[in-house]
Amino acid sequence: MSASKASKTPQAPQARPGDMRPLAEVPGERPPKPRPAPVPDPEAAQYWAAMGEGRLLVQGCTRCGNRQLYPRQHCLTCRGPVEWVEASGRGTVYSYTVIRQNHQRPFRDWIPYVVALVDLEEGPRIMTNVVGCDPEDVYVGMTVEATRFDVLSDEAGIALFEPVPGFEHRG
């Protein structure tokens, strides 16, 4: 994406690279496009709805205690019944990439941004954006916490993660 293209699209004040804040609407301009909202299926509807209310859930097996995501109809370890358990929101970066090319709105205005897989304290791994820091500062093993829940529709929100204060800075 060229810099000139980016500058044509009005943006909300971007405090730092990697914030990925919703873009501001500017009168007379095409309205900014939101992130695509998750379209729930029956297994995941509660998962998405909870994040719309600022809560991150994982599934817990009532028989063997296994914690899992994606949401499934039963526990993948023992096939027992599952219930929803609120997660702490803390985790570590398992792997990540810094996206430097994406022509689709709104992401083209956020380049470079980080897509990461985060291992939650409870065990399951989820995909997210690590925000609130320079993308170059992210590393495998970084401690992060779900601090931002963006509401994307009536029925779905997403959890975004930031480095916990005092994270180890690596060149």
Binding site: P36, P38, P40, A44, A49, Y70, V115, M127, E155
Partner: peptide
């Protein structure tokens, strides 16, 4: 619509819910 009424029209649409909102295209 009531929350939860809109359902994914395909397994793919349901599953990309876990990736596309994050710009994993």
């Amino acid at each position: 619509p009531r929350p939860g009424v809109r359902r994914a029209r395909s397994l793919l649409e349901a599953h990309v819910a876990f990736t596309m909102p994050f710009g994993m295209f």
